[in-house]
Simulated scan of single mutants.
Amino acid sequence: MAELVTIRCLSDNYAYLVHGGGQTALVDAPEAAPILAELGRRGWTLDHVLLTHHHDDHIDGVAEIVEATGARVTGAAADAHRLPPLDRQIRPGETFEVCGEDVHVIDVPGHTVGHVAFHMPQAQLVFTADSLMALGCGRLMEGTADQMWASLSALDALPGETVVCSGHDYCRGNGAFALSVDAGNEALRRRLDDTAAGRRPCSPSTLDDERQSNPFLRAPDLAASLGMAGAPDAEVFAQLRRMKDEFRG
């Protein structure tokens, strides 16, 4: 089974190393120094860099990391014009292999229109970056609410034990918003208490954790309390996303 290592970068970003099958892969490269340091501590040679989307805080470390390691870079063909130079261009629905693991490419537009997620079913990992996030989801920077809801629904269809590796530690703000719209949710309160006490990290989490505590995945369950009983799920999600954008708690 592949080994997962979470690396904190910049102020609140996450990068992830996957090690197995005699290879090491990196998912997203916010900055080079902490990633290269972790590789050095473990004595791992980096073979692959997988990029979820084009935003600077996910790609700024690529050039330095590639120069230091010679790793091959994989990213979405649709975003090749605004990603670092790609050795492999992938498309939603395709499968490729790294670290002895099949990697399924999932289309997750919303935060950006070219955003992809990487699902490793054997390792029970999914790298969602700024689509599905711990206790939240990414802002709609380029895409629409309908697109993001479809993306979240596609990720929600994965097995519940899947470990969700998201792109940022926004737990404090996301948690405060979640409580504001879902105050009676005991699973949410336990998760926040455990995170605050250091008993569990913000990310990674499991998909079941997100189903129980993430208000955006719980949009259908929150419809009535928002005065939207009977509304389409995508409309309820869109209202939650607007509320989160305006939230100052």
Rank of each mutant, 00 (worst) to 15 (best):
A219F: 08
L46D: 02
T206S: 09
M228L: 14
G114T: 11
F247N: 11
E38M: 09
S166Q: 04
D107M: 07
D130R: 03
G75E: 04
G175Q: 08
L132Y: 00
D245Y: 10
H19R: 15
V181H: 01
Y16V: 01
P201V: 04
Q122T: 13
L207N: 06
G249C: 00
L10W: 07
V62T: 14
M148P: 03
D221T: 10
E161G: 06
R190N: 13
C165I: 09
A157T: 01
A129C: 15
E235I: 08
A229S: 10
H104W: 10
L135K: 07
G22S: 07
G173A: 13
A29R: 11
L36Y: 01
G160N: 11
P220D: 09
P215Q: 09
D87S: 05
T206N: 03
P92F: 00
M1H: 12
L207W: 04
A134V: 08
R88D: 09
T195C: 14
T69M: 01
R139E: 13
V181Y: 00
A157D: 08
I90E: 09
R218L: 11
T144M: 03
S11Y: 12
P220W: 08
A68P: 08
A197N: 10
A219K: 06
Q89P: 04
A196M: 09
P34N: 10
F216H: 06
G110T: 08
G75A: 06
T112G: 00
I106K: 05
I59W: 01
V181G: 00
D146N: 12
A183V: 07
A32E: 03
L4R: 06
G43Y: 01
L226K: 06
P85Q: 02
P85E: 08
E186M: 12
A231C: 06
Y16N: 00
D208G: 05
Y14V: 00
H168S: 14
R190P: 06
A197D: 13
A29M: 12
G143E: 02
E97D: 12
P215W: 06
E246F: 09
P232W: 00
G20W: 02
R248Y: 12
S166P: 05
G227I: 11
P121G: 04
R200S: 12
D28I: 10
A197E: 14
D87C: 00
A150Y: 03
R88V: 13
Q122A: 14
E235H: 11
A117V: 01
G143P: 03
L155P: 01
L51C: 08
D107V: 08
T52A: 14
